[in-house]
């Protein structure tokens, strides 16, 4: 199953809608709550990044019974120093974003902490593609 969302870079009040919808879809499918929460947090942080830094973009969530793969692609300014960006507390977000409750440099670390796989491909001046993989646990123990 595949869901595709156009994420607006202009309207911050809509930011997070795609993540909410993916969360509900996983709930309807009966995915374990822990994996749903990890998916929700990772995708929401990526969606906020996309709105704040990337000027919006396209989010695709592709899921099977075993896992969800989320791809977030924007055509924003790109990330100049990825190692720095991964550090907790480092942020290039403007002050008004901080007033919205984000932009404190927790986004990428939160994504890393909650995902089973996080890939970031970024080119300065071209854009950023973030891929998040969450593996669902199967009833009866272990992971699929």
């Amino acid at each position: 199953m595949k869901l595709r969302y156009q994420v607006s870079g202009d309207d911050l009040s809509l930011a997070g809608k795609a993540s909410s919808e993916v969360k509900r879809a996983l709930g309807r499918l009966g995915v374990d709550p822990g994996a749903i929460k990890r998916t929700a947090v990772s995708m929401y942080e990526a969606e906020m990044n996309m709105v704040i830094h990337g000027g919006g973009g396209v989010a695709v969530a592709e899921f099977s019974p075993e896992r969800i793969v989320i791809t977030m692609e924007d055509s924003g300014p790109g990330i100049a120093d990825l190692d720095l960006a991964m550090q907790e507390g480092y942020s290039t977000a403007p002050e008004w974003i901080r007033e919205m409750g984000f932009g404190a440099g927790m986004g990428l670390p939160n994504m890393k902490r909650n995902s089973d796989e996080l890939r970031i491909e970024s080119e300065v001046g071209k854009g950023t593609t973030v891929t998040i993989v969450i593996i669902f646990s199967v009833p009866g123990g272990g992971q699929a």
Binding site: L12, A15, G16, S19, G101, F102, M106, R113
Partner: peptide, 26 residues
Amino acid sequence: LMSDVMAFVKENVVLLTGLVNPQSIR
């Protein structure tokens, strides 16, 4: 700070906040 909520909250809690915007609900 909503990122802190996402970083630190584990179990079902009541959230107290002064941040009145759709992101707090979301």
